Structure formats: structure tokens, C-alpha cells
Amino acid sequence: MPPAGPTRASRLAGSPWLLLAPSLVLMLLLFGWPLVQGVLAAFRDEAGFTLAHWQRLFDDPYFFRALRNTLLLIVIVVPVQLVLAVGMALLMQARPRFLSGHFYLWTVPLAVSELAAGLVWLSIFAERGYLNSLLVSLGLSENGVQWLGYQNTGSMLFTVVVAEIWRATSLVFVIVVAGVQLIPRDYDEAAQVFGASIWQRLRHVTLPLLKPSLQVALILRTILALQAFAVAQALTGRDFPLLVGETYQWYVNLQNPAVASAVALVVLALSLGTAVLYLRAMRGGGR
């Protein structure tokens, strides 16, 4: 008589889905349910389905300014942070003196909250801040520069970019360092034996092997840049609006959760779109 096959209960007990079930339930409760409620709030009112909330959002002059500023912040900050993080990680790989000191120094901003970082840079870029005091004392400016003046959009963007680069480059750095540590040194040494220059080794050996870490760093940093709020709020208030800041304005100050949900869905769509773009681009680059 042939042996009996595994029962349905035994198959279920050995299924990986059983181990994943608690995490899946937690994810659904923490993210799935709020997402459903946000979508319903953005597309419904007392009478049912409506696009009135979106029309009100698009009629708001701050929305498109916030969208432009957020995209500018991503386009400028993310590439600069990636280049800095790769350079810092390669320096760590060269094992300079006081290696641990370099690592801890570069990761200090990770321990600083966004709001605290914004206040620190506010003390530097304010009208009577440290930077203007230095410029006046050196005779480079008579009364200082209005870095945070509401009419100086370019200088406000500059201050937010500098603050974000200082605050969040360490996050990208930690991810890239972890990736560099996983690359066998034999590959780089073999490339040196065959006469490859430092740039050739970087382009053809290090960066291709770093692709998974760079992909994670790009996706995570872009999503976090889309959520930037506290630094810009501390530096410029609503003179330099960002998308998440507009969500806060609509929800807290204007008492309109429906329009706030619409802005949040825009942030979600941009986050998903950039993640898919990075995944396709990095996958295509490896063919």
C-alpha cells in the first residue's frame, strides 16, 4: 500500500506563509487600512464619489510650488549625496588613520532629528546668523545676505539643499559602506595586476558590484526626500513649500483632511513611480 501523502494541515504547518502571517497582518493594519481610508477621503464626500477635493488642491497656488520645490530638492540632493557617500565609503575602504573616528564623525548627523538640524542651520543662515556675521567681519558683505528672504527662492533652495545634504548623507553612506564591505578585495587586486587605473576599477569593478546597495540607497533616499518637511519648515516656513508641508497645512491649519489625503496620495504616487524607475533602470544597466 503506497504511503499516504502529506495532509493539508501538515502542508500548512510547514508553509512559509504561516511564518509570514503575523508580519503581513501587522503591515495591513499599519499601512493597508490607513491607505484605504486615505483614498476614500480623497475621493468621497457626503454625497459619494467626488473630485472636488482634487479641484480645490489644484486651484491652490501653493501646491504646484510645493511640487516643483520637492522635485528640485530630489534632483539636486540625491545625486550629490550618492556621490559623496560613494567617495566617503571608498575612503573608508582605503583604511586611513583614525578609521573609526572618520566613521563616527560622518554618521553624527544620523543622531540629529530633522527639526533640530533645521534649527542648527537656521542659526547659520539667519539674517544675524553665524554666516552673515562672518561675511561682515571679513568685509565680504556690508549688511549680510538675505539667505531666507521670501523673495529669494534660489537662496532658500540653497539653504534647504545644504541642510538636507548635511543631515541625510550619512544614511546613504552607511548603506554604501555596508555594500563596499561585501565586495571581495580579490577583484580589485586582480584589476590592479592587469593595469587598470583607479577610475577603470571604480567603473568596471566597484560600481557594478555595488549596484544592489546603490539601488537600495537611491530608493530609500528619494522616498525620504519626498517626505522632507521639518528642515524646510524650520528654515523657511511656508515661503519654500514642500509636498509633505502642504499635507500638514491642509490637515492641521486648514482643517481639511480630504485635501490633505489628496496631497499624501501624490507623494505616494511619486514614491512608487521613482522606485519602479530606479528598479527598471538598475536592472537594465546590468544587461
Rank of each mutant, 00 (worst) to 15 (best):
A163I: 10
F63Q: 13
I219Q: 00
Y62T: 15
S271M: 00
P34V: 04
V259W: 05
N132P: 02
V267W: 09
L40D: 02
L122M: 05
R11N: 04
S155L: 15
G245C: 05
L224W: 14
L265A: 13
L12Q: 04
R185K: 14
R65S: 13
G237D: 13
I175D: 05
E114R: 13
W17Y: 14
R238N: 09
P3E: 13
A269N: 09
F43P: 05
R201F: 05
G245T: 10
L279D: 01
A234V: 01
V174F: 12
L131Q: 08
P109Q: 12
M27G: 12
G154L: 11
P3F: 13
R167N: 14
A178I: 11
A13G: 03
W33T: 03
R203L: 11
A230L: 06
L182T: 15
N143P: 00
R8L: 15
A42I: 01
V193R: 08
L84P: 01
L115E: 07
A262W: 08
S113W: 07
A225Q: 01
L19E: 08
L209R: 13
L272D: 00
E142S: 09
A230K: 04
V136E: 10
E246Q: 15
L12I: 10
V83I: 15
V108Y: 10
R203I: 02
T206K: 09
A163V: 08
L18V: 12
G87A: 09
P109S: 02
G285K: 12
P61G: 06
L115T: 15
A264R: 10
A232W: 05
L272A: 02
A260Q: 04
W250H: 14
F229S: 11
A42M: 05
R185T: 15
W166C: 09
N69Y: 12
W250C: 10
S271V: 06
A42H: 11
F49L: 14
R56V: 07
L268Q: 07
W147Y: 08
A275D: 08
P96E: 03
F63S: 04
V252D: 08
W147P: 10
V80Q: 03
G285P: 06
A225L: 02
H102D: 00
T222Y: 14
G101W: 08
V78P: 01
L210G: 07
A42W: 04
F31E: 01
L202N: 11
R238V: 11
S155M: 15
F194D: 15
L115P: 03
P241M: 08
F43R: 04
R221G: 06
S10R: 10
Y150M: 15
G32T: 01
L148F: 10
L131V: 06
N152M: 11
P79N: 03
L242A: 02
Y278P: 06
F125G: 09
V216F: 13
Q37D: 07
R56Y: 07
V108G: 00
D186C: 08
V244E: 13
H53Q: 06
F103P: 00
L40S: 14
M27Y: 15
Y104K: 00
A196W: 11
P79L: 02
Q151G: 14
L99D: 05
T169Y: 01
M282H: 04
Q215S: 15
M156V: 03
Q255L: 14
L277P: 12
F229Q: 05
Q81S: 00
S137I: 00
E189K: 12
G273L: 01
